[in-house]
Design a protein around this nucleic acid. Structure first.
Lengths: 198, 198
DNA sequence: CGAAAATTTGACATGACTCAACTGGAGTGG
DNA sequence: CCACTCCAGTTGAGTCATGTCAAATTTTCG
């Protein structure tokens, strides 16, 4: 067993945190995953392409973003360690990507295709349970984000972001944060100035 | 078999559209569902209560809404026939409700508790597959809504809402729509006036 | 019909945007 | 080691979309 295999094996329990897996199950899962290293600036998904896989992040930082009709970028999601990333809208519905997924900091990833995932759902039902719960949890975080747009002003949304995702804040540029919060970099700059005075 | 039973039985394929179920499975599912009739104005979920069930809507109209620190209501979700509703944030994580679920038009519902749902996941694995896909689909619709807040102005969001949910529009008040779009009723009124001129 | 609820309208206020200029730091090469 | 460039962030002035508040109007429904 080489080093690469070893560290991949160690990653399986990390991915399926909370699941009790037998040795055979770990081996089966491993056989369906691909280790991928991606450099800053690389794109794992590009708008209008097919999206047949999603990525588990072992380390690094990524973001998915939408480009509107005026060419403005809007960050849909950030991804750091222990989280998954893809264009889920496209991945789940098997339509063309409406977002790009871009590497912000060199990343170490595990890639799984939709076919392999469907295979694992059948072979190991608790994997499907895990992904059901993960999707449910995504729903709750997105719901909260929607409510934050409805009920908070820009400054409050920024504070809430800092509170919810302190590790993300340390890995991304302010203009990424602004495009996630739905404000301009100028506004974010003024908000930060205002907050630092208080 | 009485009428009530008959119509409930007929609803099962409607709920699990796309799933092929045996007669025994339908009977098992039915045994875990409760038929509920709810009048306009009733609340199925109230903020800070426990949320141990979700509702499938046979007919009628409902909404879930959040109340912010200034007492303003923000509609999180509408529900009409064939859709499910609850405070998912609370239901999935089994925490106290952060939203109310309110009946907008007299509703005919099927109620399922989290225990019964977990039982069905075990007993009929394809039910879990169905709910996994439903959660994934919810993620994609919420993702699109988030992107609409980031990239569209109030008027464009309104048009997009009319396009995506024409049946909802016919069942709810304008102030419900405004609170879903994140604007005031006055702004919505002006937008409608502007659009009717064009 | 009449009261209550929903919507519309007007005048004004304001938070966030736009555009352009400026600052500061990180890296690069002469 | 300085000069240059590039990129991110900041600042200022003016604008605009949407909000606020109060009043008028229309619709709904008992």
């Amino acid at each position: 067993m080489n080093l690469r295999k070893l560290s991949l094996n160690q990653s399986i329990p990390q991915i399926f945190e909370g699941l009790v897996l037998t040795d055979e199950e770990v081996i089966l899962i491993e056989s369906r995953l691909d280790r991928v290293f991606a450099k800053k600036g690389e794109r794992l998904v590009e708008i209008s392409n097919n999206v047949d896989c999603q990525y588990f992040i072992i380390s690094g930082c990524l973001r998915s973003f939408y480009v509107d009709k005026n060419g403005k970028e809007h960050t849909a999601q950030f991804g750091i360690y222990d989280w998954w990333i893809s264009d889920y809208t496209a991945f789940f519905s098997q339509e063309k990507a409406i977002m790009n997924v871009e590497v912000i900091k060199d990343a170490d990833l595990l890639k799984i295709s939709i076919e392999d995932l469907n295979y694992l759902y059948k072979a190991i039902p608790k994997i499907e349970t895990f992904f059901r719960k993960r999707a449910e949890w995504s729903c709750t975080t997105m719901q909260k984000r929607i409510l934050s747009y409805l009920s908070l002003n820009a400054s409050e949304r920024y504070l809430s972001f800092l509170n919810d995702y302190p590790e993300v804040e340390q890995n991304v540029k302010n203009y990424h944060i602004a495009s996630y919060l739905g404000i301009t970099t100028e506004s974010l700059s003024r908000i930060r100035k205002e907050l630092s005075r208080a």
